[in-house]
Amino acid sequence: MRVIWAVALIALVVGCGGGAQPAAESTTSVSKGPVPTVKPVVLSEIPHDTSAWIEGLEFDGPVLYEGTGEAGKSQLRELDPKTGAVIRFAPLPNNYYGEGITVVGDKIWELTWKDGVAIEWDIATLTPLREVPVQGEGWGLCNDGERLVRTDGTDRLRFHDSVSFAETGSIVVTLNGLAIDRLNELDCVDGKVWANVWMSDKIVRIDPGTGVVDLVVDASDVSRAAGADRQKVLNGTAHIDGDEFLITGKYWPKMYRVRIDAPSS
């Protein structure tokens, strides 16, 4: 089934990070052929803090980390993956608006939305180690093992050195031949990048070498079960193992362990 998205311009009260105005898709064309769409299979449900304006979710082995947003309220957290309880947390410095997170060894990198910095944290103590300047907005972030992948609300994946956070390149992301923007919370899995599409119930799988989306995950059934609305949007994906993921959203009362039966690309 050929998937064609017509993205409406919506005046958001809150954007990825609280107030971003989504841009229409551009017409850069690089992909060919229909992109398959699958629905996640829910395996179990886990409680989730309904006060969490979630911006990032990631497993480091059995340990689950969450980054939350909103200026003056943003936190970096360690969660119990079985109960969803907050084990420990730290507020972001300087009232920064926290965004995507990713683990790099014994550190965590965290983006800020419009504050122009990325924060490097010490995992053992959950204390900030340094701040590094970043051009543009910060949305999603993941670690592919060789570099970091960042989104900024546009139609690009941006690549960064995992030590210095220097930007090393970028690529336009396309779905069915059209550039697709509002790429948000990210996961790097087996050479692919999975991205939540802000203000939608979709997750897309991207080949970072070409920028082409080769799979769309329709999570609308899970969103409805979570009681999603214009604020309670899908925005949290953490790879567990194999074809299993944990997905949730802003202010959602639950996290869902799901299986995504993805055809090979």
Score class of each variant (00 low, 15 high):
T151D: 04
R2S: 10
A85M: 10
T151H: 06
I240Q: 15
W139Y: 06
T168A: 00
N196H: 05
E78I: 01
V7W: 15
I171S: 10
N143M: 02
V216D: 02
S162H: 07
G211K: 00
V197R: 12
G249W: 09
S220T: 05
E185R: 02
V14N: 14
V216T: 02
C188M: 08
L183S: 04
E185D: 14
V3Y: 08
G98D: 09
I260D: 02
I171T: 14
V104F: 14
V149Y: 06
V149R: 15
E185T: 00
A166L: 10
I247F: 04
L246W: 01
G15P: 08
G84L: 07
L129R: 10
S51A: 11
G236S: 02
P62S: 12
G145K: 14
L12Q: 11
A225P: 01
A20P: 08
G67W: 04
A90F: 10
L111S: 06
D229E: 07
L141W: 00
I54K: 05
P263E: 13
V63T: 14
E55N: 11
L234I: 00
E45F: 13
L9R: 01
Q135P: 00
E55L: 09
P208F: 03
K114I: 00
L148P: 13
W194Q: 04
F89T: 08
W194L: 09
G18T: 06
E58A: 05
E78Q: 15
V7I: 14
R156F: 11
T68S: 12
V204K: 02
E167S: 01
V38R: 11
A262R: 07
W109G: 11
V193R: 11
G19D: 12
L64M: 08
G145H: 11
K107T: 08
A118I: 05
A219W: 05
R88D: 05
